[in-house]
């Protein structure tokens, strides 16, 4: 029981702390939690802002999907072929520490301020953790499992798709989960830099106009989106890799 309501209690505690801090500080640019919550219906009820959210989510979905589709095969190939790994590893090491949003101004110069630039930044943000985890997952696949498959007549490509992929799936999905959160972050930051549409656009326009209750309402909404997306993904993940879940760890004793 306590375990189930614990997350709710945590959220509630955060809101209470916020409320008290804002009452104590009495700062115009720091509205109380109640004020921010009261501003949420106005944001969500506005047709323009819904169009903005739609645009954000569309870019996020496309960027995430494209990243997953390309990164998983690349990561798996890197994990099983030393040549592929030696080729891509240095490239990835260069890209990894660069904040993807920092590339946004350059990408905007090339591709404009539209969807393409933002989607590309999301794509880059998601790709790296997915590649990395797919790579690690594929590397860890037991050699003997692949040999068993080879003895059954599976070709190299079949082994990659039908053994390496499922065996590495728990690790891959861990990468996807990180990628999903990064997609949300890069989505907002890309819209912050190229303000044209999207949730980040609403947030930073409100900031410019000093509508602080809207700013904080947006922060709550984006946070809630993160929680919902993560929870949905977690349910999907749990279904896909039920066989690797820890509750299955206690083996039966029978010889």
């Amino acid at each position: 029981m306590i375990r189930r309501i614990a997350p709710l209690l945590a959220c509630l505690g955060l809101l209470v702390a916020w409320q008290l801090a804002s009452l104590a500080l009495k700062n115009d640019s720091f509205p109380t939690a109640l004020e921010a919550i009261r501003a949420i219906p106005a944001v969500l009820g506005d047709k323009d802002s819904l169009v903005n959210f739609g645009a954000s989510l569309r870019r996020m979905a496309i960027g995430f999907a494209a990243a997953v589709v390309i990164s998983i095969p690349l990561g798996l190939l890197m994990g099983r072929s030393r040549a592929v790994a030696s080729f891509f590893n240095p490239l990835l090491m260069v890209i990894y520490p660069v904040p993807k949003a920092a590339l946004m101004p350059i990408i905007m110069l090339w591709l404009g301020v539209g969807d393409l630039s933002k989607t590309l930044v999301i794509f880059l943000g998601v790709s790296l953790p997915v590649i990395y985890h797919s790579f690690e997952g594929a590397k860890a696949v037991e050699e003997k499992m692949l040999w068993s498959g080879a003895a059954m007549g599976l070709s190299a490509v079949q082994r990659l798709v039908r053994i390496v992929l499922p065996a590495a799936l728990p690790e891959i999905l861990t990468g996807c989960r990180t990628g999903l959160v990064l997609a949300l972050i890069t989505m907002i930051t890309s819209e912050m830099i190229a303000r044209q549409s999207g949730a980040g656009n609403i947030l930073f326009n409100a900031l410019d106009m000093g509508q602080y209750d809207t700013v904080f309402a947006m922060i709550i909404i984006v946070g809630a989106m993160g929680i919902v997306l993560d929870a949905l993904f977690e349910r999907l993940r749990a279904r896909l890799v039920r066989w690797s879940e820890p509750q299955f760890d206690i083996p039966l004793s029978f010889s």
Binding site: E142, K144, W147, S148, A150, A151, M152, P166, V241, S244
Partner: peptide, 20 residues
């Protein structure tokens, strides 16, 4: 020249497919 279904291995590590 390579593995084939005429020779079936059984390994100490079992090497089962855990997702099956």
């Amino acid at each position: 020249t390579g593995p084939g279904p005429d020779r079936g291995p059984v390994f100490q590590e079992f090497a089962l497919f855990p997702w099956k």
